[in-house]
């Protein structure tokens, strides 16, 4: 399969149904790139025509804004809005809840109004519409817990779509103590991903991993590239990286359906 940029679509006189916003992590982070691949496979398996911006995509500006650097945020955000407007983008899907939040909630005030979906929301819609069929069995008897990312969960109120997908996957699903609106942060948000921690007793990802280990999981399912990094680091610190896997929800579908 071939992933086309929106420029390529336009050049051939076509219009994609949706723009896949890949994000910095999905583009450059070795682990998160696998999630981009998985999600692209799902999209093409259901025959959705999707485009990426490719080199015309730029950081949404989330970490810069939350760090307090509004100039950098405005520069990159306005650039993105202009790019998407020039391609008449209307609908966006992204596998990063930080990108999702900024595109959905912050770009409108800057002049960028788009319909924005998190990839778990789109996947859930596809399952509901019968366009995506989950071939179960792969995760039967596998203990799976789910980590709510702050930016999808508490901040944007989406708790159901990821859980509905996990339910379809027929896993042995176990909730952690702190879940949904009470979910515990992985420690990466607010631009923490890009700096050392302030002095304290432990790292936030350690706290979260310890909590998830109480469910005795085979897999921790997540929906955010930064959460995935944090959880994997936390597992490594506990020397559990070979016993417990951290997967994005899209990756579980790819495994289940053998895509």
């Amino acid at each position: 399969m071939k992933v086309k940029t929106i420029a390529e679509y336009v050049a051939s006189g076509e219009k994609p149904e949706i723009l896949f916003w890949v994000g910095c992590a999905g583009s450059f982070d070795a682990r998160a790139k696998k999630v981009s691949v998985a999600f692209a496979k799902i999209l093409s398996s259901v025959g959705i025509s999707f485009a990426i911006l490719g080199n015309e995509e730029s950081c949404t500006g989330d970490p810069a804004r939350r760090a307090g650097n509004e100039f950098i945020f405005q520069m990159t955000a306005i650039q993105n809005i202009e790019t998407m407007k020039s391609y008449e983008v209307q609908k966006i899907v992204t596998a990063c809840p930080h990108c999702f939040n900024t595109l959905k909630n912050e770009y409108p005030k800057l002049g960028g109004e788009f319909t924005v979906l998190h990839h778990t929301q789109l996947i859930q819609q596809l399952i509901e519409e019968g366009k995506l069929k989950i071939e179960g069995g792969e995760f039967k008897g596998k203990r799976v817990t789910y980590h709510d990312s702050c930016y999808l969960g508490r901040i944007n109120g989406e708790y159901e779509a990821p859980r509905a997908i996990l339910n379809e996957l027929d896993t042995d699903f176990i909730e952690m103590d702190r879940k949904r609106e009470n979910g515990l942060c992985c420690g990466a948000g607010g631009a923490q991903m890009f700096k050392e921690d302030e002095p304290g007793d432990k790292r936030i990802n350690t706290e979260r991993v310890e909590e998830s280990l109480k469910t005795n999981p085979d897999i921790i399912a997540a929906n955010c590239p930064f959460c995935i990094t944090m959880l994997m680091d936390g597992l490594k610190a506990k020397e559990k990286q070979d016993d417990v896997m951290v997967y994005d929800i899209s990756e579980l579908i790819v495994q289940s359906n053998g895509l």
Partner: peptide
């Protein structure tokens, strides 16, 4: 490049 990830497909 920002779209190098697609080579992994």
């Amino acid at each position: 490049n920002r779209d190098d990830w697609k080579n992994e497909l």
